[in-house]
Amino acid sequence: MLDIYLQTTWETFYMVLVATGLATIVGIPLGVILIITEKEHIYPNAFINKMIGALVNIFRSIPFIILLVALLPFTKLLIGTRIGTEAAMVPLTVAAIPFLARVIETALKEIDKGIIEASRAMGASPWQIIRRVLLPEALPGILLGIIITFVSLIGYSAMAGAVGGGGLGDLAIREGYQRNHQDVTWIVVTILVVMVQVFQSFGDWTVRKIREKRGLI
């Protein structure tokens, strides 16, 4: 029985990690585009800003359970199957991207406008400002955003279990709910709580270390 808990915990961790990773790769550029295309930023473009903003909002307003079902054909096309851990990563990633984009946008918004102006005054190009100013300056905020996404996806991944996505959620539904083994449900819930605590604390600790090093706290 221990094996099954270890295995499903690993599955949950694995799919959430990959989904967060993929979402970060797409979400950071989106967040950056959202901020730099704003008025009076380094690359103002109202059209791109509005369009990406709208797209992000649309995806963020779709409830995850609906997104999960709606993406099934797309998942099948991409992965070759609709069930299993790999398949569950697709809706998780899609749900995380717009969320992360907004979180990153917020983190980048915190940067003092004066620092950006100073960089422009030194002759920095928009790309140099993104790479050497915006991302390093917002690093603590970006890391916090990634951790929040990771933690939220742990919850979402349980829902993915409902459509045979594997992981702890799947176990809780099949064993705990459908076979009425309440102890399984409680153990799963406990594991989830511990997972969330561990990762959130690790994230907070890392961010605090960075801020301490920079003399910000």
Partner: peptide, 30 residues
Amino acid sequence: LRKQMGMIFQHFNLLTSRTVAENIAFPMEI
């Protein structure tokens, strides 16, 4: 042109992600 001009500010506008030496290095990296 801007690389040949220096500018200083009322609120300094330094990079908090960098040390003193790294801040001085910044315009040269650019």
